[in-house]
């Protein structure tokens, strides 16, 4: 888990969007499995590199339809049992036929995470996935992501504006400033000792 921190406008979200190829790099290149990703089809790349945004942005329909959407784009029909199993992993048993509009912010974000995981990505990009949530929901989503990432051995890039969250969640931390990487390494090395981070 690589946590990415930096001030507003540093380019954290832009970096994730470029990795998912929602934005095109103006110069330089992104490499995936050692290969310039421009050689891959965008659809294949996005299946392998999932992304969860700040807000859930669930589609109209049912939760099950939201989860089935990604695999369908790649010609895979996910079964009702698989959907129920995925929902069970995020603590939303019995939610398959619910309308997204009836969910709380935390529940919606858990569905968005499930929707991204339904594609079985190798890499998961998290663009401030808890910033729109209140304290309790934020902790729940953090714990959920932590366990899912460890269980599935996912490579994960987590953009956060919170140094504390970066310290808690990240195995390593990358600091961005004005579009440039200014530090990368262990959380304590990049963010300083806990007391320093608290003062910051």
């Amino acid at each position: 888990m690589l946590a990415i921190v930096g001030p507003s406008g540093a380019g954290k979200s832009t970096l994730l969007r470029m990795i998912n190829r929602l934005d095109e790099p103006t110069h330089g290149a992104v490499y995936f499995h050692g290969e310039d990703y421009r050689g891959l089809s965008t659809s294949t790349l996005r299946r392998s590199i999932g992304m969860v945004m700040q807000r859930a942005y669930l589609f109209p329909g049912t939760i099950a339809e939201n989860i089935a959407f990604g695999p369908q784009q790649h010609g895979i029909n996910i079964t009702a049992e698989q959907i129920a199993d995925l929902l069970g992993q995020v603590g939303l048993e019995g939610y398959a036929q619910r309308d997204p509009l009836t969910l709380s912010g935390g529940e919606a974000q858990r569905v968005a995470i499930t929707r991204a995981l339904a594609n079985q990505p190798e890499v998961l990009l998290l663009d401030e996935p808890t910033s729109a949530l209140d304290g309790v929901a934020r902790s729940e989503v953090e714990r959920l992501l932590e366990s899912l990432i460890r269980e599935r051995h996912l490579t994960c890039l987590w953009v956060t504006h919170s140094p504390e969250q970066a310290r808690t969640m990240g195995d390593r931390v990358l600091r961005l400033d004005a579009g440039h990487m200014t530090a990368i390494g262990a959380p304590d090395k990049v963010l300083g000792q806990t007391s320093e981070a608290s003062r910051a």
Binding site: N20, L22, T42, S43, T44, R46, R47, G50, M51, M53, R55, Y57, F59, P60, F69, G70, Q73, H74, A112, R115, A116, N119
Partner: peptide, 20 residues
Amino acid sequence: VGEIESALALGASPEAAVAR
């Protein structure tokens, strides 16, 4: 925009992302 880019990020084609 958020919904459309979420669909694209899941690998949807532009046609599928804006179909509705």
